Every structure is written in C-alpha cells, then in structure tokens.
Amino acid sequence: MRLVTYATPTGARPAAVVADDRLVDLGGIAASVTEVLSSGDALDAARAAVASADVATLPRIDAATLLAPVVPGKILCLGYNYRGHVPDGVDPTANDPEYPDVFVKTPNTLAGPNDAVVIPAGATDVDYEGEVAVVIGRRTHQVSMEDALDHVGGYTILNDVSDRAWQRRQSQWALGKCSDGFAPLGPWVVTPDEAPDPQDLLVEVVREGVVTVSQSTSTTIFSVAYVIHHLSQVLTLEPGDIVSTGTPQKLPAAQDAHRPLADGDAVTVRISGLGELTTRFISAQVVATQESAA
C-alpha cells in the first residue's frame, strides 16, 4: 500500500492511495499512518478497506492537501554511503568507512511533500540531497541484521536540504542541516510488501529538467538492514522514526555546474518503486514581502 496523511477540516487523517490518484480514508481504522504501520490488526484492516473500496466514488488525491506521511520522533541520516566511480581494476570497497557517519535532523525540519522550502535570510549555499528514507514500523532495540528488515514499516523519500556554508563552519553538521523545513518528506509511505528490494532502487534527482543524480542503491556501503541493526545498538527506534540512507554524489557535469538553490528553483527526487517528491524553494525575502502585502 501507499499510505498518506492528508489535511481535513477536522484534522489530519491517514489514507491509502489507489488507482494512482484516489484516496481511501483510513481514519476509522487508525489515527495516523504510524499507527497503521505499527499495528498488525490496523494494517490488515487497511488492506481490507482498500480491497473493498469502490474506486469511482473515492476523492482524488489532487483534491487533498498532503502532509508529511508520518511525524517522526527522530530523523536519523547518513553521510557518505554511496561508493563513487573508480577506475577499472581498482577495488571499489577500498575506501569504505568501517561504520556509518550518522547525524540528526531536528523536528522543526519536517515538511510536507507540497510545502515550499524557505531559503533562510543570509543563506549562501543551500543544496539538495535525494534519499531513500526508511520508516520504522516496530519498536527496535539491539536487533540483529537478520531480523532488521522485519522492523521496517515502509519506505518513502526525503530531501535532505542543507546549507553548506553553515555546514562548513563547524565539525558538527547540525546548523547546516536543521533550518526550518529542511526535510521535505513523502509523498507517501510504500509498505514493504509493495516496495522493491531496498538494495536495488534507482535514485535520481532532477533540477530544472536536468538529471543531476542517478545511481542505484546497490552501490551503497551500508545496507538498510545493517543501518537499522547498527543504530539500534545505541538507541531505541520507535514506530514512525525516519532513517534516511544517504545520497549519491552528483553526476560530474552537475558538480561542475553547481549553483546554490535560489528563489523559484524546483528539485524532484524520483526513486524507482517509491515515486517522486518535488520541492519548490522560495527566499525568505519573498515570503516577507508576501506576508506584508497580505
């Protein structure tokens, strides 16, 4: 299933997407997508509701206001996790780190799939990173690698927006990663039974019509199973938590033509089997002008 959270006059409600553009409301089954993912009974009931739905009577998804599909207690992200190109005959694993480089994005960074990201005043080098994000479905503590994927509730897309200038100012990355709205998420969570193999997904990013990133998750250093196992040795992962698995490097032409994100730019992250997440960027100055004119 593809599970979303959408806004209604009475509050946020979970739903499933069917026939590509219709919503099956699941608010009578669970209060949130996280609750659907973390309860076997709720998940079974949601599947039954989808199977029995009369598609012709369902509202269209474009008539709904999509919110972030889950509200995580923790957003844990990886730094370097994709191997780059190496010359023929060179061992591609030679420079692999022993352990993942883990950082956090704070709760204020969460944004919905249709929310514009505001470029903060004074930001000089805002950048994007398209990533496969894992949604935890079961409480996870010191899980083995063999059992780690059993704790996955589903997969979604995260744009790890970063202010490189702030990131370069210190050894810790928090101030470069945690501006308001710097973690657009969605548009939905794909449950594992309908998601492809997480180690065989094509991650692409398109900026203004140009593909700037294109690489398979088969080239990651640390698998989803390993990352969940590794993190759970230190902290308990709770249902709804997000583990974002890192971004591939930009293609050489995109690296050479790097330009910080600016007002009016749009970036689309598309991942095979998971869908697309398009994020628009707007400057803080434009927002301030709009608010003063309102």
Rank of each mutant, 00 (worst) to 15 (best):
M1N: 02
M1K: 05
M1Y: 04
R2A: 04
L3W: 07
T10H: 13
G11Y: 09
R13C: 07
A16R: 09
D20M: 07
D25R: 07
V36A: 06
S38V: 11
S38D: 08
S38C: 14
D41R: 13
A42V: 06
D44S: 10
R47H: 14
A51H: 09
A56T: 11
T57S: 15
L58R: 03
P59H: 08
I61S: 13
T65W: 01
L67G: 08
P69W: 13
K74P: 01
I75D: 00
I75M: 14
Y80C: 01
Y80K: 09
H85A: 15
V86R: 12
V86E: 10
V90Y: 14
T93R: 14
E98A: 15
Y99T: 13
P100N: 02
P100F: 01
K105F: 01
T106G: 00
T106D: 00
P107D: 03
N108C: 07
L110T: 11
G112Q: 06
V117F: 02
V118E: 02
G122Y: 07
D125C: 06
V126D: 02
V126L: 01
Y128T: 10
E131Q: 13
V134R: 06
V135P: 00
I136G: 03
R139T: 15
T140S: 10
M145L: 05
L149S: 03
L149H: 04
D150R: 15
V152M: 11
G153W: 09
Y155K: 04
Y155Q: 07
V161I: 14
V161S: 05
D163G: 00
R164P: 04
L175P: 00
S179W: 07
F182H: 01
F182M: 00
A183T: 03
A183M: 01
A183N: 03
W188S: 14
V189K: 05
T191I: 07
T191D: 08
P192L: 08
P192I: 08
P192T: 10
D193P: 12
P196W: 08
D197C: 10
D197L: 07
P198L: 11
L201K: 12
E204N: 05
V213I: 14
S216D: 13
T217A: 05
S218E: 12
T219F: 06
I221T: 15
F222M: 09
V227D: 01
H229Y: 09
L231W: 11
V243L: 02
G246P: 04
A254V: 12
A257P: 10
H258Q: 10
P260D: 05
A262D: 08
G264S: 09
V267Y: 13
T268S: 14
I271C: 12
G273A: 03
L274M: 02
G275P: 11
L277W: 13
T278I: 05
S283C: 08
Q285R: 15
V287G: 04
Q290W: 10
S292G: 00
